[in-house]
Design a protein around this nucleic acid. Structure first.
Length: 234
DNA sequence: GACCAGGCACATC
DNA sequence: GATGTGCATGGT
């Protein structure tokens, strides 16, 4: 539900992250299809390992829907091996590819011309595409305004006291989408910044992060202005 | 050697 | 509906 104060806090956190890190230029990928493949391969996996798999796929020139769809599954699995879960991810990629071919004749342009809410429902019906992967595809491949929620988002914003640590995906997504303007470029940058600060400061078992620009251990939205030692609450 | 990383589906209770 | 488990490689 819309809450002006929560909106202000979310914007203050965004500003603090952007001041600290600047633009993140997400998603790392040259084409919408590459972004979609990356979204599946990164499931519960460090991005560095996904890059190794993507390098293999590029070398074999398989980063188009039709070429990947026509590739022997065993070959595909061997190429994506470095990113882990390679058997299950091969199946998930093939489910996604079947979906694209059957419903959209293999055309991502056609796919992303569909009503975004409907497309989201369709993607969620694809086996292996859950809410985060679906929203990552919509936002980063399709430039549709869906906020992407991941483990860092839950960890950081529950530590900030803005949401319960056991809130479900849609409650977390609503925190952002109900209280911030619906803007794909803004959501893009915000999520990328969350991952950036998450990787650097918000480890699973880390309660101490004094250098973190949003300093979750201090509670809700207390940020330091750049170049000042004086604390300012926004 | 343990722990973790930009999830998801499925089994079981 | 809530909780537990399998999937797997590579970096720290």
């Amino acid at each position: 539900m819309f809450d002006k104060e929560i909106g202000k806090q979310l914007k203050a956190i965004y500003r603090a992250l952007y001041r600290a890190y600047g633009p993140q230029h997400w998603w790392p990928g040259d084409t919408p299809f590459e972004v979609m493949v990356g979204a599946v391969l990164t499931q519960n996996t460090a991005w560095a390992n996904v890059e190794k798999a993507m390098t293999n796929l590029k070398r074999e020139r398989l980063l188009t829907p039709s070429r990947m769809f026509n590739t022997d599954p065993e070959k595909l699995a061997s190429l994506i091996r470095p990113c882990g879960y390679f058997n299950i991810k091969t199946k998930r990629l093939r489910h996604l590819l079947s979906f694209i071919h059957i419903l959209y004749s293999g055309s991502l342009t056609r796919m992303f011309s569909t009503d975004p809410g409907l497309l989201r429902q369709q993607l969620l019906e694809v086996n292996g595409i859950g809410p985060e992967t679906s929203d990552a595809i919509l936002l980063y491949a399709g430039e549709k305004p869906f906020f992407v929620v991941d483990t860092y988002t839950r960890r950081i914003f529950s530590r900030q006291g803005l949401i319960s640590s056991d809130a479900d995906y849609h409650a977390l997504q609503g925190l952002f989408m109900d209280n911030l303007p619906s803007d794909a470029r803004f959501y893009n940058e915000y999520h990328a910044l969350i991952v950036r600060v998450g990787k650097e400061h918000c480890k699973k078992t880390r309660p101490l992060c004094s250098a973190c620009p949003i300093r979750c251990e201090r509670g809700p939205v207390s940020v330091l202005p750049i170049g000042s030692s004086r604390e300012k609450t926004i």
